[in-house]
Amino acid sequence: MKFIEVKDLKIEFTRIDENGREVPGKVALDGISLDIEKGSFVAVVGMNGSGKSTLAKCFNGLLAPSAGRVVVGGFDTAEEEHIWDVRRRVGMVFQNPDNQIVSSIVEDDVAFGPENLGIEPKEIRRRVDDALKRVGMYELKDKGAHMLSGGQKQRIAIAGAIAMRPECIVFDEPTAMLDPKGRASVMSIIRDLNAEGITCILITHFMSEAEQADRVIVLKKGKVLCDRTPEALFSDREMIEKAGLEMPPAIEIRDKAGLPEHLTTADDIADYIAKK
């Protein structure tokens, strides 16, 4: 079942010229069409400036299309009266762990979203406790947000999204500013959420993260360059180079050692060598 439908989406930013008039500026997205299946785990990759973050902001109506349509769970994001229906269904986690936490105390920040939805205080409490437990931060609920590490802050941001009970969460480079430990903890939470049925859209620069998705969408200069499974993408060296990306280490080793192409993971390679 489709959860998000994107049709001929165009985003054009305007700028103010010397005479103070609004004129067309940069085209960030140029005719994007794609569907996101309910419950899937989709990675979006591409170079800086390829339009990844702009696309992320279209999934929950933070940006309205200049042309084309984005429909989320049956609601068109361009329709003002449904914007809250869209945002309630699609949560978002941003790159900078510091700049998305509103309240000084952990649990108060997680409560921010549900409070905006006008939910009963008792129900908010239940949701906040539940969300904090799911990201493993329940013990720190009374702590000051500024005392936490980057990885912990990012888990709070995820809890803030979970507490709104969304059907989908868009992660916009959530691990870019984290150390390996923080990065691993965020990725494992994303996998758990997806296993529980939440649709996950992950924007990332790390191929090792994109590899974990069911499907990878590659953007270049505001257009979809390709849209396939990670296995299919990483067996296409030409495409990887064209998109300015890189191969996961296992595939690099496979190709440099002259191993057969059907081996796609480190496990495959190890099994193949063990059998020789």
């Binding site: 809250w84 945002r87 309630r88 978002m92 905006n116 941001a157 709104m164």
Partner: peptide, 26 residues
Amino acid sequence: RIAQDLALAMEARCYHGGSGRTRMNE
């Protein structure tokens, strides 16, 4: 930059002013 990021994050979490807002701890 912080203000811009924060405004976006608040909007994404359905912030739309004080009306209709509830509180976890009354």
